[in-house]
Structure formats: C-alpha cells, structure tokens
C-alpha cells in the first residue's frame, strides 16, 4: 500500500506518496530528479548510490524510502554549502580523481560523512573508512590522495 512519506531532501521538504518498500534511490532519481546517486548494483555492495541519511552515509539502493520518513536526506547535489563545494568535492577536482566518474558519488559522499565526523584521520583510517566502495576504472590512487588532501584541509580549518 502506498503511503504518504515526508522528508527533507537537500534542505527542502518533500511529501511523497510511495510504496514504503521502494528503494530511496529510485525516488531520488526518478521523482526528485536527483541524478547524482547512481545505480551500481542494487545490492549495497558498491556504494555508487550513497546518500546521507541523518548525516550518516547509507546505500540508498537498499534503503526503503519509508526509513527516510521525517528524516533529513542529503545527496551530492546538496553537499555544497552557500555555493561553495564541500572540501571533499574540491579536493577530488584538485586531484582530478576520476576516470569514468560513475562511482564517484559513492566516494565523495562516504568521504564527506567520514571526514565531517572526524577529519583527523591517518591514511590507514581513511582506507578503512573507504573500504568496500568499488571503482572499476581503478582510480583508487588519486581518490586516496584526494581524501587525504581533504582531511588535511578540514583538520586545518578546524584548528583555526
């Protein structure tokens, strides 16, 4: 049975009539026109569909839309603040950290949640935080450099 589900997406309130079990990903992409999160596997194995739900990185392809009821959802389209890109996004540009870029939403959204929580992470902690995400082109080296760069910038910003 369809239900009315209310949530906040990228700072705007939305009211959706949907089957509660519908994966959040399809609602975001097909109804709200937010194409940043990608369908990679539909199994929660690759991370291409990652969004923030209540600030935590979740895989929207296996997240029922009902679990976002009355919650705050942020997609990569909503990651920039006041027109400025998130530090992680800027670092990915500075390191040119993409090949095809289809997976990159997952890396940026996962890294942003990781570093927003604590930017003072060593390389090993960053690798662990990103482990499990897939990149088929093999962009890992530049992605790792980008996330380390973002971590150092965010840590420095917090110190000042």
């Amino acid at each position: 049975m369809e239900e009315t589900i209310e949530m906040t997406v990228n700072g705007r309130s939305a009211s959706l009539l949907a089957e509660p079990s519908t994966p959040l990903l399809y609602v975001l992409r097909n109804d709200l026109g937010l194409a940043g999160p990608k369908f990679g596997c539909g199994l929660g194995q690759c991370g291409a569909c990652t969004v923030h739900l209540g600030g935590a990185a979740v895989r929207s392809c296996i997240t029922p839309v009902a679990s976002a009821r009355n919650a705050t959802v942020t997609t990569i389209e909503g990651l920039a603040r006041a027109g400025a890109l998130h530090t992680v996004q800027q670092a990915f540009i500075d390191e040119q950290a993409a090949q095809c870029g289809y997976c990159i939403n997952g890396w940026i959204m996962t890294a942003a949640a990781l570093l927003d929580a604590d930017p003072n992470l060593g390389e090993d902690q960053i690798r662990r935080g990103l482990s499990g995400l897939k990149c088929r082109c093999g962009t890992h080296m530049s992605i790792l450099r980008a996330v380390k760069l973002a971590a150092s910038r965010m840590a420095a910003a917090r110190r000042t």
Binding site: A35, K38, E77, I93
Partner: peptide, 19 residues
C-alpha cells in the same frame, strides 16, 4: 591541463546515459 569532464563529475552535473 585539468580535464573538462572532472569538475562537472564532482558537482554531479555530468549526465550519463543512465541519467
């Protein structure tokens, strides 16, 4: 030089066939 497709990809402005 910086690739033309990179910044749009990071801003989620790059459109794939799937989009």
């Amino acid at each position: 030089v910086a690739r033309m497709d990179i910044a749009p990809k990071m801003r989620a402005e790059y459109r794939y066939a799937a989009d």
